[in-house]
Computed example of a mutant assay.
Amino acid sequence: MNLHEYQGKEILSSFGVRVQRGIVADNHKSAVDAAKQLSAETGTGWWVIKAQIHAGGRGKGGGVKLAKNLGEVESISKNIIGMMLKTPQTPPQGKKVHQVLIAEDVYYPGDSEPEEFYMSVLLNRGAGKNMIMYSTEGGMDIETVAEETPHLIFLEEVDPATGLLPFQARKIAFNLGLSGKAFKEMTKFATSLYEAYVKSDATLFEINPVLKTSDDKILAVDAKVTLDNNALFRHKDYVDLRDLREESPIEVEANAAGLNYVDLDGNVGCMVNGAGLAMSTMDLIKQSGGEPANFLDVGGTADAERVETGFRIILKDPAVKAILVNIFGGIVRCDRVAQGIVDAYKNMGDEIKVPIIVRLQGTNAVEAKELIDKSGLNVISVVEFKEAADKVQEVLG
């Protein structure tokens, strides 16, 4: 589950991580009120107006602006709220901005120049350990840094059994070239950040930039946070942080129906039971010259109602030119799945305008194929993977 910047900062702050303070607003008038409140609490005279969407690169798309007076706070907020913000990480049409974060100015003058760093915490699956990735090149796309100056990216693997050890936190501060107060601040920042990652059951904490202020404070200016959906039962207070407006409407509908669905940019819809079989089916579609339009795992109960729901969700995507149903009848009998497909097809009638290819293997697979073949519907029944691939290639032309 992805979070907005302001939500991620709230979690960080709860674990003792110093953050750039801010107040969220959903209209230009409340934005001005937030700026006044922030000024009274922090003494800031300038404010950063940040669009709150689930995507990076907001500044490049015009979603992050500096306001030097309350009039600019109002006008900038009015322009950003409601806009379709386009960044490299949004769909082509962009994402609508529903709220902005009014944040304090932390780039104030002082004894030294502010410095920006990059830091993230995530799982290194290959090593079976958590990992802190960090760099002196903050404020930039980390992909660009990795490609052009890979020697400026550092990795610190952390054993989950011991957590981040003191010497590792000091090593991070040392590699970032810090000393004195800033060195101590960074060791505390890295330790608290790792604690927040573990105790919130996150899959990603990305802070870009981590700022060393002119008076040697270390704080998170941004926060990209992804939580593990499977661990939300341990964090009842995090469930309400989900913003359905930021998610694909099709995925939200599928989730409500109890289907495991991921929207993709292809032309062949998939309906499969089991994640492994689903991945194999997607490979089969690509090898046949098509592109998967979705990942859809209907689970072990592929009855008529569930199949019909799956069809309706897949067909909401206008790019779908064919549907491949690939079910293994282990827990569920193939003939029941076949009957479910026939019943769903008849219920939907003219709504189905694309060919459906069905491969059923397992318990009562022979009876299932016979039932499909005798249905008189535009459903193509196949037995082998190769045969399914050939049919996909055939219907796509």
Rank of each mutant, 00 (worst) to 15 (best):
M1H: 15
I11K: 08
G16C: 09
G22F: 03
G22R: 08
S30V: 15
D33I: 09
A35D: 03
W47P: 01
K50C: 04
G57L: 05
K60Q: 13
G61H: 09
V64I: 15
K65D: 00
V73C: 06
S77D: 02
S77F: 05
P91E: 11
K96G: 02
L101H: 04
A103C: 14
A103V: 04
Y107C: 01
G110D: 06
E116L: 08
E116W: 02
Y118A: 05
N130A: 05
G139P: 05
L152T: 02
E156A: 08
A161G: 08
F167C: 01
A169P: 00
K171L: 12
I172A: 04
I172Y: 02
F174Y: 11
G180A: 08
A202T: 10
L204T: 11
F205S: 05
E206G: 09
D216W: 01
V221A: 15
N229R: 13
N230L: 10
A231M: 13
R234H: 14
Y238V: 09
R242S: 10
R242C: 07
E253L: 12
A256Q: 15
L259F: 06
G266N: 05
G266V: 07
V268K: 08
A275L: 07
G276S: 12
L277C: 09
S280H: 10
K286Q: 14
Q287D: 12
A293V: 07
V298Y: 01
V298E: 00
T301D: 06
A304I: 03
A304S: 15
T309G: 13
I313P: 00
I313Y: 01
K321L: 05
I327W: 04
F328E: 05
I331H: 06
D335V: 14
D343A: 14
Y345W: 13
K353D: 13
P355A: 11
A365S: 13
E367N: 11
K369T: 12
E370H: 06
L371G: 02
D373V: 05
I380Y: 09
K386V: 13
A388P: 07
